[in-house]
């Protein structure tokens, strides 16, 4: 009994505890136990029966809800490409930031990210070996959809807080410092606009994560491995 149990535990070792995982596990284990008993009843010794039961199912990845078999390296390459695209766009948008010393780092940071992601992208993109391109792996699309929701939520809170702080600084100035803030001319107006705008640049993070489930669907391996 315990031998089959540890075998099934091992099949599921990659997966965290969850209701659907536990149920699938229990179902597979009870069926393997039934198979073992049946084989023993038909005259096999216990060792062979366990062996036969174990051999009947060697992977459960395709049975886990939301799991999809994808061409992992092609998927990674395109998600890098997407990230690169978003980074380049936001870098271009923030070029005017270079006029303001305080916000120059935003633009520089984006530029450095472009270089870093670009290097990884180029490295991966130039590997043309068949085994690399056609490598398959299971990923769980539900995790990404879940992650997407969480990240958008955090981003929403982050942006709201940032906007509130900037607004507080500008328009609450008369409360904190008992004198209103002065916007005297286009430079200080632009500075205010940039202070408001900067937090929104981080939207590329949820946008990149949002694109991942779509890419997973795109790179799903066509035929299901059925016998």
């Amino acid at each position: 009994m315990s031998e089959l149990k540890s075998y099934v535990d091992n099949l599921f070792s990659r997966y965290q505890k969850a209701k659907n995982i536990d149920e699938l596990k229990a179902e597979i284990l009870s069926n393997l136990e039934a198979k073992k008993s049946d084989l023993i009843a038909s005259g096999l010794d216990e060792k062979t029966a366990i062996q036969r039961a174990e051999n009947s199912i060697t992977s459960i990845d395709n049975l886990v809800d939301g799991n999809m078999n994808i061409y992992i390296n092609q998927y990674r390459l395109e998600s890098l490409q997407q990230s690169l695209l978003y980074l380049v766009i936001s870098w271009i948008i923030t070029i005017p930031f270079t006029l303001f010393r305080n916000f120059l780092p935003v633009n520089l940071l984006l530029f450095c990210s472009i270089i870093a992601v670009g290097i990884v992208y180029f490295r991966k993109g130039t590997n043309k070996t068949k085994s690399y391109i056609e490598k398959q792996q299971y990923v769980n699309i539900k995790h990404y959809i879940h992650l997407n929701r969480i990240v958008w939520f955090i981003w929403g809170v982050f942006v709201t807080v940032c906007v509130m702080i900037v607004t507080g600084l500008y328009f609450g100035s008369s409360i904190w410092f008992s004198r209103p803030i002065r916007i005297d001319g286009p430079y200080s107006f632009a500075l205010m606009a940039i202070r408001y705008f900067t937090p929104f640049v981080t939207v590329i993070i949820p946008l990149i994560i949002k694109s991942l489930p779509e890419l997973i669907l795109k790179y799903e391996v066509g035929e299901r491995n059925e016998e």
Partner: peptide, 28 residues
């Protein structure tokens, strides 16, 4: 019926000529 018994039933109906594999059973 439950999983393994379904496999057995299919094997029985086919007079032992066809045996459904476990991975296909679960997928189905």
């Amino acid at each position: 019926n439950y999983g393994y018994e379904i496999i057995k039933a299919i094997s029985l109906i086919s007079n032992g000529l066809y045996e459904l594999k476990e991975p296909s059973l679960y997928t189905s």
